[in-house]
Write a protein that binds this DNA or RNA. Structure first.
Length: 172
DNA sequence: ACGATGATGAAC
DNA sequence: TTCATCATCGTA
């Protein structure tokens, strides 16, 4: 079983999509060669009110993609050095996204994009084979007891309510 | 514990 | 146009 995930999968709330992405495969195609990595850690950023989300400041040039249709990449630069890879989720007009923080063998969102040569060139592009970066269901079933829920990382400034939400999902 | 390193958004 | 901030990481 090998299915490329599309809009139907991503067009749900970020806290629904994020745990479902654990066990799916991030596939990168470069100069004819494919590399696939099982996703092991994700974080959900959901809605205008989520103060940990870039979208909480409203529609800007950068966040516009988060307000758009599900199934597109949102890639941005952080600390002047690292690129963060997100998938836009939810309905068109509703800002939400899932940050892919780790895959099997590559721990950390900044390391992940560096290793897979993922840059802001992917920003706003579709999550599909044609862009060279997509996500597949390869039939791996992850038992919910193997998905740990925790608070998100690096969002202390979002205020107690949003910083405490257990929207980080880790494969254990 | 700290500095690297540059885009972003808000203030002025 | 300046300025603080930042969904991080490597070195110490």
């Amino acid at each position: 079983m090998r299915k490329v995930l599309g809009k139907a999968f991503f067009r749900r709330s970020a806290p629904e999509v994020a745990p479902d992405l654990i066990g799916k495969y991030l596939v990168r195609e470069m100069n004819g060669a494919q590399e696939a990595y099982m996703i092991t850690e994700t974080e959900a950023y959901e809605g205008l009110d989520d103060r940990a989300s870039h979208a909480s400041r409203g529609r800007t040039k950068r966040t516009e993609v988060m307000f758009g249709p599900a199934g597109h990449w949102y890639v941005y630069l952080i600390y002047g050095m690292y690129q963060m890879l997100n998938v836009v989720t939810g309905d068109d007009g509703h800002p939400s996204a899932v940050l892919i923080r780790a895959v099997e063998g590559i721990d950390g969102p900044g390391r992940l994009t560096k290793r897979l040569s993922i840059t802001r060139d992917f920003n706003t592009k579709k999550v599909s084979k044609v862009t060279g970066l997509w996500i597949e269901d390869r039939g791996v079933r992850i038992d919910p007891t193997h998905i740990k829920k925790t608070a998100r990382i690096g969002v202390e400034n979002a205020g107690p309510v949003w910083a405490k939400k257990e929207w980080r999902f880790v494969y254990i």
